[in-house]
Design a binder for these strands. Structure first.
Length: 316
DNA sequence: TGCAGTGTTGCTTC
DNA sequence: CGAAGCAACACTGC
């Protein structure tokens, strides 16, 4: 479940290894509604061959000039003022390497796929991700940037860089928590839009702040000594400040550790990040609280339909 | 074996 | 209007 630090890690990887390549071909096996391809203003399903053809025509021959991030979206900037947006949702990974198209001999899947893409060399890009490659960008150096996505929630969109479709895509998003302009004042004004909302839910609300999901919200609240059940209106000045400081600190820490691979996130080389080894709350149910001097035990509860992990002793 | 759990987003319902 | 519920999906673990 890529959140801000995982998406940022992927973007850094693309800038390191993929920028400068030209797109020579694209491929997909999507047949459901979920991988949407939008070209200009027309939203259509990639299963519509006409629109996949159009998407292909727009990107083949274009050069990848860089990647950036907005909220949990990866933006791949192309020459000719085109941008490919990839939202990895729950289980998506962008992977870079040498891939090979093979006829499916049923050893990988049960869903009657006629052909699949597998990593050329044994290594970290091998199973389990091979089975779930649903979108492939072939590059001029013969390598591939592929989207592996077990649950097929990921979204791929194409729009004109800086155009109205891009604006529409991002119009609902809250500020970037790591931007310079995001200060304590902005955090408080954003949080105050949901005075009755529970802090855990509000932190994950992409219209309030963009990029935070279940893992990082649990960790931010642990470090801020605040219960996930507290409502915004009850937060003191001091508590808001703690949330502000820890949001910046923990997201930056996630990036410097290469993201969180407790679930199945991998960077573009197929390698795991390390933030999962630093969790103090997320999925630590039953563990002794690691806060110095605290005698609590991490508890799992459900907040806003999501699992929340916290220490009921020092998080109040 | 069957079913709850996993989690983001956006749409629907209350 | 805001909050809650649910679908999209596929696999894991109990």
């Amino acid at each position: 479940m890529p959140e801000l630090p995982e998406v940022q890690t992927t973007v850094l990887g693309i800038n390191n290894k993929v920028t400068g390549q030209t797109i020579t071909d694209i491929w997909t096996d999507y047949t459901t509604n979920n991988l949407l391809v939008t070209t200009n203003n027309r939203k259509n399903q990639i299963k519509n061959p006409k629109f996949f053809k159009r998407f292909k025509k727009e990107v083949v021959g274009k050069k990848i000039i860089g990647a950036s991030r907005r909220a949990k979206n990866v933006l791949i900037h192309l020459s000719g003022d085109k941008t490919i947006l990839v939202h990895m949702k729950m289980t998506g990974h962008l992977l870079f390497g040498e891939y090979r198209r093979v006829t499916n001999d049923q050893q990988f899947t049960t869903n009657n796929k006629k052909e699949i893409w597998v990593a050329e060399e044994p290594g970290p890009l091998q199973d389990p991700f091979n089975r779930f490659v649903h979108f492939v960008i072939t590059l001029s150096n013969g390598k591939h940037l592929v989207l592996s996505d077990m649950r097929k929630f990921a979204k791929v969109t194409l729009f004109n860089t800086g155009g109205p479709d891009e604006a529409r895509e991002f119009s609902h998003l809250g500020p970037e928590p790591l931007s310079r302009s995001f200060d304590i004042k902005e955090l408080k004004s954003q949080l105050s839009k949901k005075p009755r909302g529970k802090i855990k839910t509000v932190l994950m609300d992409q219209t309030i702040i963009s990029g935070i999901g279940n893992i990082y919200s649990d960790e931010i609240l642990f470090s801020s000594n605040i219960s996930p059940l507290r409502t915004i209106a009850t937060l003191s000045e001091k508590e808001s400040k703690l949330i502000f400081i820890n949001t910046k600190k923990i997201l930056k820490r996630g990036i410097s550790l290469g993201g969180d691979s407790m679930s199945d996130y991998r960077n573009i080389d197929g390698l795991p990040g390390n933030f999962q080894n630093k969790h103090k709350a997320y999925r630590k149910t039953g563990s002794a609280c690691s806060k110095r001097g605290c005698v609590g035990k991490i508890k799992r509860i459900v907040v806003g339909g999501r699992s929340a992990h916290y220490c009921p002793v020092h998080q109040t």
